[in-house]
């Protein structure tokens, strides 16, 4: 499945491991014994380019692009089954989140294009209203991610709307300025 099978030391990204180690919980990756409990537990393992065990192996071997461009990180639905079963207590789900963030920031989320659209619009709405507005999120997602299949979503949306489960108006928190001040300060401080 790997694009390149023989890899020379010189083309591998050794900094990648340090980058991952520096994340909260990232140090634990060193302890991975490649037992495969994570891959065996993963409900999406079968559709992933590389199931979690291989991802850890690839990280440690410096296959940066293969990891960040894989569909694996986008199929992780945060069910934490692997994380609670890992005999070395690696925070696997949190590592997947970190990989999602790096892939989005570096424009490597091609296989996660739709997931990235969903997440980015979610963040946008929370920053705007202080809360997620599910109706607007779904609309924005369809427009940006699935414009050609918009009609597929209509029956679904209608069922929810007619049952009172998709409000038209968003709810904006009163003290949105407070939230914005916090986010502005985070911007100044920088992420991890």
């Amino acid at each position: 499945m790997l694009k390149r099978e023989v890899v020379y030391e010189s083309v591998l990204d050794h900094d990648f491991l340090d980058e991952i180690y520096s994340l909260p919980g990232g140090q634990e990756i060193k302890k991975c014994i490649q037992c495969g409990t994570c891959s065996g537990s993963c409900p999406q393992g079968a559709v992933m380019d590389y199931a979690p065990r291989k991802i850890f192996s690839l990280i440690r071997a410096g296959f940066r692009d293969e990891v960040l461009e894989s569909n694996t990180i986008w199929y992780c639905s945060s069910c934490y089954t692997c994380a609670v079963r890992c005999p070395k207590e690696i925070k696997i789900t949190d590592v997947m989140y970190a990989l999602k963030r790096i892939a989005i920031k570096e424009g490597k989320a091609k296989k996660g294009r739709k997931a990235a659209i969903l997440s980015n619009n979610f963040v946008r709405l929370v920053n705007k209203y202080g809360r997620n507005h599910e109706t607007e999120l779904m609309t924005r997602y369809i427009l940006f991610a699935e414009p050609h299949h918009a009609f597929n979503f209509i029956p679904q949306g209608w069922k929810l709307f007619s049952n009172g489960r998709l409000p038209i108006m968003p709810h904006k928190i009163k003290n949105i300025d407070q939230l914005r001040k916090i986010l502005k300060k985070v911007d100044e401080l920088g992420e991890i």
């Binding site: 989140y97 963030r101 989005i104 979610f122 009163k174 003290n175 992420e191």
Partner: peptide, 25 residues
Amino acid sequence: ADWNCCGATAYLSVEDIASMAVAAR
């Protein structure tokens, strides 16, 4: 009082500290 979104799985996929700060409010 005046609670805001916790950030859920989506915010954490985009921002790290910001998502936790949003929840921490």
